[in-house]
Amino acid sequence: MTKHKTAQGKYYFEDFAPGDVWEMESPVITREEMVEFASRFDPQYFHVDEEAARHSHGGLIASGWHTVSICMRLACDRYLLDTVGLGSPGVSHLRWLRPVRPGDRLRLRTTVIEARISRSKPDRGTIENRWEVFNQAGELVMTMEIQGILCRRQHGPAA
């Protein structure tokens, strides 16, 4: 993907074409961080209580929002922090397909599925990416389609 890097080390709308694939991998997700995230944001028993989760869910499972957040960090480190963008309007078809458990490692694969220039604001465009998240066994645990608004290169960063 280095072919997309500009002299400034930034990615713009033009650098994401349908079919482009990026891959990234997470560190091992620990029980401590799973429980810590869930205690703050999603304290359902199967995210925070090992004993109760064993009976109902075969053990502790990560909050789906934790899984998404971990993947967001992977995308940030891989390309988003070098991308001239204006945030995201939203996501469709977010699916939590399999539980994420302590000790799992996640692999995120993003594929550009659509790139369209804004008709009302020609200095920007929308990129739609499909995210597929796999665990270390290669099983699909999460998918979604996320839109991002990116600046176009010839127009430079937004004021």
């Binding site: 359902q44 199967f46 109902s56 869910h57 499972i61 789906g64 945030g87 995201s88 309007p89 939203g90 996501v91 469709s92 078809h93 977010l94 699916r95 939590w96 397909l97 979604m144």
Partner: peptide, 13 residues
Amino acid sequence: SCIGSPGMDELRW
């Protein structure tokens, strides 16, 4: 009695 979520059809900021 929630036991989990299969996902979100749509999410808008």
